[in-house]
């Protein structure tokens, strides 16, 4: 509406860009830049997330056709022993991975940081498994832990069928998971340890703190933001555990390693119960959101104090 006075209307054909059109121009540019990503994001992440809620109230199959059935899927789910088995196994798996993986990561980070010339080489050795595809990891460990011809049982004289044993299957998968992913935690811990300023250590050392006391009074509290970040990432990752279990144990022996996502896969893709499987998905999502929220609060408190 306010025409720019500075510029004389020399060329009458294109109307001079007004403020309104500048604003329009700005929005157009923003939209063009934002749209490709946001469109994909809404379509392939947000939409399925909302749709899974809707599907959980239907008896849909894998092509998405189904009728509204109310809360029937939910009553069936909570009355189904298999669901509780899967939930329990998932929690057990988290217990067997999240905490050990964090502690081992911290320990190895401390060991690596004190090295000089060998530092990069040793770090690479621990991190290398992290860049491997999961099926490579499971193939390699299936071979090393093979009950008859595996190297491990040969060296130890054990006859345990690691991935098929009702007691050992879950811990074995947990162990493989730690071997595979601990490098990630080491990296984060190294970054965290480097961020602790040397002055703090020097001051504490002057006070006579050393060894264990130095660790507990300085390192551990200063490292807490990183530690809790790692715990959070671990926790969320292990709730979604599927690949290693599917490839190593298929949930067996007799559902001893059945976890939530595998249960959802079985019901949804193998038995075509899309609606019921969506219900498991909703529960999984609710749990993960809840954990994220709790951890987020803890994390903030930890940072503030």
């Amino acid at each position: 509406m306010i025409s720019p006075p500075a510029r004389p209307p020399a060329a009458p054909v294109p109307p001079p860009p007004g403020r309104a059109s500048q604003v329009r121009q700005k929005y157009l540019t923003a939209a063009l830049l934002v749209l490709p990503f946001v469109a994909l994001y809404l379509l392939f992440l947000i939409y399925p997330t909302l749709r899974v809620l809707q599907l959980s109230f239907t008896n849909a199959d894998l092509s998405g056709n189904g009728a509204y059935v109310g809360v029937q899927n939910y009553t069936r789910l909570f009355g189904e022993p298999t669901f509780w088995t899967a939930l329990l196994n998932t929690l057990l798996f988290i217990l067997l991975t999240a905490v050990p993986n964090t502690l081992i990561g911290l320990g190895l980070a401390l060991l690596i940081l004190r090295l000089n010339r060998l530092k990069n080489l040793v770090l690479a050795a621990f991190f290398l498994p992290y860049v491997l595809p999961v099926s490579v990891v499971t193939n390699v460990w299936n071979w090393v832990l093979d009950s008859n011809f595996g190297l491990f049982n040969f060296l130890t004289g054990s006859t345990v069928t690691w991935f098929q044993d009702p007691v050992w299957a879950l811990p074995s998968v947990a162990f493989v998971t730690i071997w595979w992913t601990v490098g990630f935690n080491i990296l984060l811990f190294i970054a965290g340890l480097r961020n602790i300023s040397p002055e703090i250590y020097e001051a504490a050392a002057l006070d006579g703190a050393a060894g264990w006391r130095l660790f507990w009074s300085i390192t551990w509290p200063n490292l807490w933001p990183v530690t809790s970040l790692i715990l959070l990432l671990q926790l969320i990752a292990q709730f979604k555990i599927f690949d290693q279990i599917y490839l190593l144990t298929q949930g067996g022996p007799f559902d001893k390693t059945l976890v939530l996502l595998l249960y959802a896969y079985r019901e949804g893709f193998q038995q075509q119960h899309g609606g019921y499987s969506s219900t498991i998905g909703v529960v999984l999502m609710a749990v993960i959101l809840l954990v994220s929220a709790i951890q987020f609060r803890l994390l903030n408190r930890g940072e503030r104090s």
Binding site: T82, P166, G252, P253, F254, D255, R266
Partner: peptide, 10 residues
């Protein structure tokens, strides 16, 4: 089949 495995193997 799955149900047999889960319930009979124990």
């Amino acid at each position: 089949y799955d149900a047999i495995g889960v319930n009979f193997t124990p």
